[in-house]
Design a protein around this nucleic acid. Structure first.
Lengths: 113, 113
DNA sequence: CGGGATCCGTCTTGATACTG
DNA sequence: CAGTATCAAGACGGATCCCG
């Protein structure tokens, strides 16, 4: 998540960007749940903490996947939106979700969902 | 990477399993490069360290994505193979690789690859 | 020599409290 | 509401050691 790229492998480079426990959760919230504001991301069931959320939003912004907009100065209100590059992650999220559903079907009972 | 599941979301659950800097690198090495042995994983350009590799292989084994086989006792030789569940991650890896290639095309010059 | 385990120092993550 | 400050806990990396 820090250096641009560990290696020339596109998988490794992608993981450098989004390969951690939280980044794709935030992207998911924007992409599938239409969340835009700091408070909304905090409200997700995974319970990201404020400093981690801040750092992930900054990284996503730096990587050009997310744009920040101040839409009110007093009170200060910020909103976050996926850029076109950010939106292009949709197939990745979708594939992960599909895999998760399949895999979890086998290891957990349906009532847990 | 620790608890079974942070939430009922299949994306979050998948990330709990493989959402870190190293796990999918190891899976990639098995899936696309046919690597099987501890030493081979260490030789990848991303340079995973021995303790991290050990812990990731254990986690993958515990999750049922990888099987360990001792194919020689003296000298002791261990090999690691993807189970069917592990192999089912192929579309995930592939989608990530495709996204990486596209995204990196725009942000880096071709000579870097 | 292959396949780790262990120790240690550093960097990162995350929970909580606090601020503009 | 949208963060920042602080600090403990854990992840990571390197080196070394161990064991068959």
């Amino acid at each position: 998540m820090d250096q641009p790229c560990r290696s020339a492998c596109p998988i490794a480079c992608t993981l450098d960007l989004v390969g951690d426990r939280w980044t794709l959760i935030v992207v998911r919230d924007m992409m599938f749940f239409g969340k835009e504001r700091f408070e909304e991301f905090l409200a997700s069931p995974e319970e990201i903490s404020t400093n981690i959320l801040t750092s992930r939003l900054r990284q996503l912004e730096a990587a050009g996947l997310v744009e920040r907009k101040l839409y009110s100065t007093r009170p200060r209100r910020t909103s976050y939106h996926l850029t076109e590059t950010g939106k292009s992650l949709r197939p990745v999220l979708k594939t992960i979700a599909v895999w998760g559903l399949r895999h979890l079907e086998q290891t957990r009972t349906p009532e847990q969902f």
